[in-house]
Design a protein around this nucleic acid. Structure first.
Lengths: 348, 348
DNA sequence: CTGAAAGCGCTAACAG
DNA sequence: CTGTTAGCGCTTTCAG
């Protein structure tokens, strides 16, 4: 003889609307009305329903709801960033989240570590979860895989980096101009042997910053033989090693432009190890906590991560609200903050 | 005369399984088998289905699927942290995400800025989205509102801070012992007039660190009159202002213990402004990027954020996998890293 | 003001 | 190997 399955061993750790309806002695539609604050429910009925809701600790299942709801919105946004651990990405994330909170929208963030493979996996995952919109930092060289999604009308906004192969909104800093102005800052102070440290140039921003750097050098007629360029740097350790080599070379750089926050950290370590933090100039792209307290304090190009995130999320929501906007590139201003390291003069 | 609604103006930007089935000339269940890699489909049929999937850019709707799937899992985890913008929280987030990725689970992160109100709203939102498990940094003083959820069997693991009023897994550093050992570090070097800077003591960790500090002073018989204590500090500005006041007082502290990363940033600014970074000792709780490059480099108690996050997520998954574990407090070791600022001796 | 019936997109259970 | 039927929890529609 066997026992029938018991109620107690329920595999679902959630109460249902039906249970609430039963306890309150009403129909499910009435519960739905109450928990969604719809009109046409008598105060007394509403009271009974809320009581049952509390007694059973009931929470509506949004997923089930959005299946039937007009428009099928899931109130979820997908956010793709280099890493949830990166300060710049964190700023974007925070701003996106703030805007989303105002609308009861949840953010699913995914780190892709600048790996195109992980980007594709993550975006697929977003689609399977039926996010209402996408805010993407892309690592891929070709974004055509997203074309059908865009055509179907899903709002997609790129942040930080422009996508290749498709037309979509972009929110980004003016990387090229900012890199050029940082470079000019060094040139104006007499530097000619300048080093550029940059990550993978297949990353759109990295390449833009490199271009801005080179163009400015071109305008000043600096011979390329004077210039040290290292690309494809992955993180701080790489940057440190490479800069140490440059500093030990016969004609070492008198100034450094490090084109990303982790690379700046590596560069700072290299300068310290070489004992040259007071003699070699440095300008970094992206601010870092404590950068203002180092000696010398670090001159940086500040990107407004919060503003980038805010603008991108706002764009997604305006499209969701049905506004018919043209595809645009929205440029967020950067700021060169002079703190000391970028104002060091060349020797002699 | 009006026109009938056209197919073209579809409000749903997604293809359905039915459409794929129609195009491939099979039943929906067959499509389901193919896209979920279930057995018992002929290669030829599978090929036709994949072709239709690609042609229509179809992605399964997980939400709809999990409605029917055994156990009703949504493959989603809720993560509550102080802010997605905070380096310590970012480390936890990253580790949780890494483990989740291995199982195709998405992370919904929510910032609560140490505000109990926002915590409750966020957790409610998690429940409405039917997350499979919860990893929470709590700000509330009373977590009893979560008791029904725990009873229903939803895996909940607290990180960084122990919850009050309920029994649940906790993964955290040994805050009290770590604070005591940092304090001893200063006492051993002869400091007696030590300042403690800490945030809201209703926050569990803050209070633990305060206790560890006070207990160690008690063991050494240090008169409390010598001690400067500031609590309820909200962020860097607060800490900077308060420490500047202390330093300007008649019997200023010769050493500082700052019990959180943002507070350490404020303390560093204060010491710099007062010109005392070389004469007043400082130990901070939590590491900061570039802390090793300051002069003097900052001595800190390092918490292993990654390990905390990893352990917590692992615990959630073990419970989801049905393991019958006792409720436990899992302690992640901390490390005191001597870099210079904590080894400054008192004057005289 | 209230509730019954239908169906959102999908998968479990079962029948061919 | 394949398709049909039912139903997950909810909202829409519509009839009381």
């Amino acid at each position: 003889m066997t026992y029938p399955p018991t109620e107690a061993a329920s595999p679902r750790p959630h109460t249902t609307m039906k249970q609430v309806a039963a306890l309150a002695g009403v129909g499910t539609k009435t519960v739905s009305r109450v928990v969604n604050s719809e009109p046409n429910v008598s105060p007394e009925t509403a009271r009974r329903v809320w009581e049952a809701v509390r007694a059973l600790d009931y929470h509506v299942d949004m997923q089930a709801g959005s299946l039937r709801r007009a428009g099928g919105r899931t109130l979820t946004l997908g956010l793709l960033i280099s890493s949830v651990d990166n300060p710049f990405a964190g700023g974007i994330h925070r701003a996106v989240e703030t805007l989303c909170n105002q609308r009861g929208v949840a953010v699913i963030a995914s780190s892709m570590d600048d790996d195109p493979q992980r980007e594709i996996v993550a975006v697929n995952e977003f689609m399977r979860r039926r996010v209402d919109g996408l805010v993407l930092t892309t690592a891929a060289e070709d974004m055509r895989y997203l074309a059908p999604t865009l055509e179907r009308g899903l709002p997609v906004v790129f942040v930080d980096r422009a996508p290749a192969g498709i037309k979509a909104d972009v929110v980004a800093s003016e990387n090229r101009a900012a890199a050029a102005s940082a470079t000019r800052h060094l040139l104006e102070r007499g530097h000619r042997r300048i080093a550029l440290l940059v990550d993978r140039i297949t990353i759109h921003t990295a390449n833009e910053r490199r271009k801005g750097f080179l163009e400015e050098l071109g305008r000043w007629g600096v011979p390329t033989a004077d210039v040290h360029i290292a690309t494809e740097l992955h993180g701080a350790e790489d940057a440190e090693r490479v800069l140490l080599e440059m500093l030990a070379s016969p004609r070492p750089p008198t100034a450094v432009f490090s084109a990303q926050n982790l690379i700046t950290i590596g560069a700072l370590h290299a300068l310290r190890k070489a004992g040259k933090e007071h003699s070699v100039a440095l300008i970094g792209f992206d601010d870092l906590p404590l950068a203002d307290l180092l000696v010398p304090a670090v001159t940086v190009v500040i990107q407004d991560a919060q503003e980038i995130g805010r603008t991108a999320a706002e764009r997604v929501f305006r499209r969701l609200d049905g506004e018919d906007l043209p595809i645009e590139k929205l440029v967020i201003p950067t700021r060169l903050v002079e703190r000391g390291s970028g104002e060091i003069l060349p020797p002699g």
